[in-house]
Structures are given as structure tokens and as C-alpha cells.
Design a protein around this nucleic acid. Structure first.
Lengths: 194, 194, 194, 194
DNA sequence: TATGAATGAGTCTTCATTCAT
DNA sequence: CATGAATGAAGACTCATTCAT
């Protein structure tokens, strides 16, 4: 890996959480220089734009979250148990493992309505991929006779995601861990009843 | 109502939807003068600073949404039917009735994490009041033997809100009406099964 | 005249000569604040852009030069004498009357080849108007039997302008007053022989 | 020729036309790396700074132009015919033979008034050499009885240059080939009448 | 010698805010 | 009360230049 690539990665690693906290527009070049210790010139030497940093930081945050879910899922065998990884992680949410600032998709969805169409598009894409992944799990679970045949995969997938995102948002808003636990409790029951 | 109060209200009415669309930080004084036809000086004559406008615009957007739900609820008699007003409205969501830009609580929750603590607090308060209102409905419904006695009001209320907010966010992100309909479908079933 | 208009005019007056000296791109906002004593914000309150200032400064410089020629011409009666105003003024060139930095059309022509198409267009327009004005004088002179009927107005007009601009450029480059005098001497003979 | 010299020459060759088009200040190091395919470090390895490149690029452009006139003149026998090479070339001006961007002396004269004294000095020197070369031709022509004895060599030389530069500038400004043809027509007559 | 990476002063522009009128 | 004009800090971004490798 070249030095340029190292610096790029370094910049992304350091800035990602600010982007996810202050918002992708609310994060300034100054924020970025402060947290990296680099100069503006250096950042512009490694990225074309603030937008490019923004986009890659979003991907980075997304990656952390995906990884978190994936590794937990791999530990689990049945499809039902795999799905239960979602409420499990959201419940045992911790700032050290989960991207600081919450779900990057949620954050981007809300922030970049008008202001940043490319980022919004990236987030929408990520969301749909996520949804399709859950649908895939559900279909496999149906095949494996784990879930009811009558189950409507897309509706279920969307519901799981809505509860998840809604829960994360409520936690972020109220800083009340109890709330998300209760919501995830419902989600667990919902999945168990599929 | 004094002239000052009228102007204040006028400013709020006009700016509220920009705030809910562009974000409370992303909306500039220039945006405000453009949409009101007033001068910056005039805005500062009626409000202490941008934050004050921000706060009142948030309240205004909140009011529109509350009103929407309340009037629909009043038409309905049983508590179950009252609760079903939520998925009903979210489903028949329209930019003319619902605040443009989506749920102000959700928006504020996401945007104002670090950047605007007072606004975040207001949103948190509004959320808790909303939650408590649903709890109240649930308790009354239990008393009226509409709902199961075993039902845990806070968990149910939080779940309803999570699905609602999650659904709105997904709609905002994907611009896909079908998605929210499916999610609200689940919510309807959930409420009907209480 | 409103205060805004006064400030605008003030800014133009003060900056015009820098633009004509340092070039329209080479003049920075800092140059402009220094020479006006105003802040950047104030300049942007009165002009949309640096480009807008640039364009108006060009017009201002153009105006000074046109005025210089016009007033000298009005003093003169015959068309031949009127044309002789050009070498006369270029000869008695002085930094106090003539725009500092030389002919704005010449300067703009050279500077804004690629970099500033709108400005170049303005300069080209000004040039053509100037040329047509000379053609008009020539035609009137022909009618008045002052000039030969065989004279080709456009060629003569273009020649006068080329010698004039060439002379100004040579003066600017060499800082040698003698040179322009010699060139204007030729121009005078040329006009006298028409 | 050492490798260093080769690289230097390569850089000059490639950058010269940008300098003459965008201006000596308007051309950035990035422009230079783009057009050469080299790195900034490499350019700084071969030249002390941007100014040095600037100066040599100016010389290079000057050389092209001089060469163009010289070779045309060598084909011609009488001094009058040699002088007529100027309007001939300016008339048959083509972007492939003539330095792109026009006469480097003219460009430098206009651009570098305040901003770049050394470059201006170089241009002034080149101009005077040019003028003296024409004076030389005129004197030889007088000796050879081609031109009138009464002719004032410096005035004629300056006039020729003024018309030439004025014409080139007008062409650059208006992009109208017809204009320069008319001007060069006058110049031809002027030389023929010497 | 050539490179890639970093620098920091500089560019233009927008921001929320103030205040004399 | 409302206005128009001014402020200066902060915004993103580009520049010529340097230096370890």
C-alpha cells in the first residue's frame, strides 16, 4: 500500500465518526484538519473534493456497521438466529463497536434530502442492498422450513429495518438505553414468531 | 394579536418547511429573507437570533403533525381505531398535509446530535410527550377491555413510534411509496393484534 | 442616489485602476479591500461576484477613455481635425487623464483570451463600437468633401486603431515617450493625407 | 546535450504555448505538470522556480516568432521585399506556425506591467532588438537606393511594429481574420511607399 | 535526478449578526 | 418596527514551493 493510500485511509478513519456525528455537510475542512493533524493542502492532495472524503467516509461507516452484523451472523446457524442478530446488536449497542453517531444510512437519509443528492443515492442503494439481504435470509429460511410459507419476505424485511432504524433514532434522540431495549424486545418477538 | 406577533407568526409559517427540508443548520438567513420577502433586520427585530426562529419553526412543524394525527383520531371512537390512525396517515402521507420534509422529530433527532443541544432537547421532549400520549391511549384501551391486560404499554408505544419513524425515514430515503405501505401494513396488523 | 449606489460607485472608482494595471484576474479581493478600506463582506453586499466588479470596472475605465476622446473631439470642427484628436491625446498621454495602465480594451483583449470570455466579449464589443464610430466620422468627412472619395472607411478605421493600440502598447512596454510620439507622428501624417 | 538539458528543453517546449495563452501569471504549476506529464518535483529539479520557466518559455516563444520572420525574409532579396514579410506573415497567420496566443512581446507587455518586472524587461529588450533590426534593414535599403533618403528609420520601424502589434491584438480580440487583412493591406501600401 | 507527499498562505464566497437611520 | 448596509469569521478550494526518499 502506497503512502498516499495510507494517508487516504488515515484521513477516512479519523474523519468518519465526525461526519456521522456532525452530519456530512456540517463537518468542515477545519474539523478534518484538526482531527487528522494534517493541513488542508494535504487533504486536497489526497482527495479531489470534500465530497469525495464525504462519500468515502460514508462507505467506511457503512462498512463498520455491515461488518458488525455479518460477524455476529456468521456465529449463528439457523436463519432465525441470524435474523435475531439485528435486535441483539442494536440492544448491546456500544459506541466503541457501532459507528459513533448511529446508523450512517439513517443519518444520510435525513440530512441529504435536498442538499447532497449523490450521497443520498449512495445511502438509498445501501439500504436496498440491506433489504435484499434480509429478503434472501427469509427465503432461505422458508426453504429450510424455519419460517412460515405464508410470510411475505419484502414486507417482513422492511418491517425489521423500520423497527431497527426507528429504534436507533429513538436511542439517539433520548439517550435512553431502556427504550431501545424495549423496542428490540418487540423485534425479537416478531422475528421469533415468523 | 399585536403586529409584532403577526410578523413573528408569518415568518415561522413561511420558513418552517425550509427548516424541515434543508435542516435547521442548513437553512440560512438568506433562505429566510427570500421566502418571507422580509429583510434580515426585520427578522432580527422579531427574533433574538436564528436559533429562536429555529426553535419556533420546529414547534410549528410539530404542531402541524400533531394536529394531523389528533383530528384523525377524534373522528374515531375505539382506542384501537384511534391507534390505527397512525398507520393510516403515514400511509396516505401527502406533502400537502404532512409537514414537507418528513417528521420534524426524526429530522431534528438526526441533525442536532452535537450541533444543537437545545433543539435536540426540544425534540426529545416532544418525543416523550408523544410516547406518553400513546401509553395513555393504551391504558384507556386496556381499561375499556379493548386491549389485552398483559400488554406492556411503554414497549408497545415505543414500538409503534419506532415503526412509524422508521417507515417515514425509509420513504424519505427511497422515495418509494410501496415500501411505507408494506411497513404500515405490518403496523396495522400489530395494532389489531394488541 | 441611494447609499448602495454610492458605495458601488466608490468601489468601482477605487478599484478600476488596479484592475487595469494588475489585470482583471490578477486583482484579488484583498487588493480591493485594501484600496477601498471596505471589508470583503461589504463588497459582496454590493456586487454579486468578483466578476461583476470586474465588468463594471472595465466599463468605468472604458468610460474615462471615451470621454477623453469625445471632449477633445467636440472642441474640433472639421472631421479631419476630429480624427487628429486620437494622435493628439495619445501623444499628450498623461497618467492623470488617461486610465492608469493604458487602454482597457487592449489590456482586456490580451489578458482574457481563454480565461474570461464574458469580459473578452465586452471588450470586443467596445472595440467594434469604436471602429464604427471612426467609420462614421470618415463617411461624414467624405460627404463633406474633406476626405478622398476613394478612401475605404473600414480599412482606414482599423488602421488608425491598430496604430493607436500598437503605440499605447509600445509606450507601456518601453516607458519611452519618444517612441509613441514618433508613432503618433506617422498617424498624424496618415490622417492628414486621407 | 545532458539529460538535464533535454528535460529542461522538453518542459519549455510543452509549456510555452500555455504561457502565451493563459498568461505568464495565469499558468499554474498544475498546468505545467499536466502538459508535460512530469511531476512538480521534477520541474523544480530543473528550474529554480516558476519564474525561471516563465522567462525561458518567453524566450522560446520569441524564438519561434523570430524564426518565422527570418526564414521568410531570407527567401526575399530586396530590402523592401524583406520588410513586406511582416504583413505577409501576419496576414497568412496560422495557429500552427505562429506562436499560439499571439505575439509574446505584446502579451508580456500588457500582462506584466506591475506584476512581473523582470519579464517585462526581457520583453522590452526583445522589442528594442526587433526595432533595431528593422532600422538596420531600412538603413541598408536606403544605402541600396531602395528607399527614400528622407525616410526617418526609427519612426518608420516603430510605425511598422505598432501596426503589426495593433493588428495582432485586434485579431486576437475580435477573432476576425478580415480585420487583420485590411490592416496588413495598409501596412503593405505603407512599406511600398517608403 | 525524479518522485510523491506535505505545506501554509492565498483564492473567492457565504454566513449570522449588528446598528445607524 | 423595519430597513439597508456593513462586518469579520468561517466556508471550500488552489497556489507555488519544499523535502525526504
Amino acid at each position: 500500500m502506497s503512502k498516499a493510500d495510507k494517508t487516504k485511509e488515515f484521513i477516512i478513519e479519523r474523519t468518519a465518526s465526525i461526519f456521522n456525528t456532525k452530519g456530512y455537510a456540517g463537518t468542515s475542512l477545519n474539523d478534518m484538519t484538526e482531527v487528522t493533524g494534517l493541513t488542508k493542502g494535504s487533504i486536497y492532495g489526497n482527495f479531489k473534493n470534500k465530497e469525495e472524503v464525504t462519500l468515502e467516509a460514508f462507505k467506511f461507516n457503512l462498512g463498520i456497521m455491515s461488518c458488525l452484523f455479518s460477524t455476529e451472523m456468521e456465529k449463528r446457524k439457523t436463519y432465525r438466529e441470524k435474523l435475531l442478530a439485528y435486535p441483539f446488536i442494536a440492544n448491546n449497542y456500544s459506541e466503541t463497536t457501532f459507528p459513533k453517531g448511529g446508523c450512517p444510512i439513517l443519518n444520510t437519509a435525513v440530512e441529504s434530502d435536498d442538499t447532497h443528492p449523490i450521497l443520498k443515492q449512495q445511502a438509498a442503494l445501501a439500504f436496498i442492498r440491506w433489504k435484499d439481504k434480509i429478503i434472501d435470509l427469509l427465503n432461505k429460511g422458508i426453504e429450510a422450513k424455519e419460517f412460515s410459507e405464508k410470510l411475505q419476505p419484502e414486507q417482513v424485511a422492511l418491517t425489521i429495518l423500520a423497527v431497527l432504524e426507528g429504534g436507533i433514532m429513538i436511542r439517539k434522540l433520548t439517550d435512553n438505553q431502556e427504550y431501545i431495549e424495549k423496542i428490540m424486545n418487540t423485534l425479537r418477538c416478531y422475528i421469533e414468531g415468523l
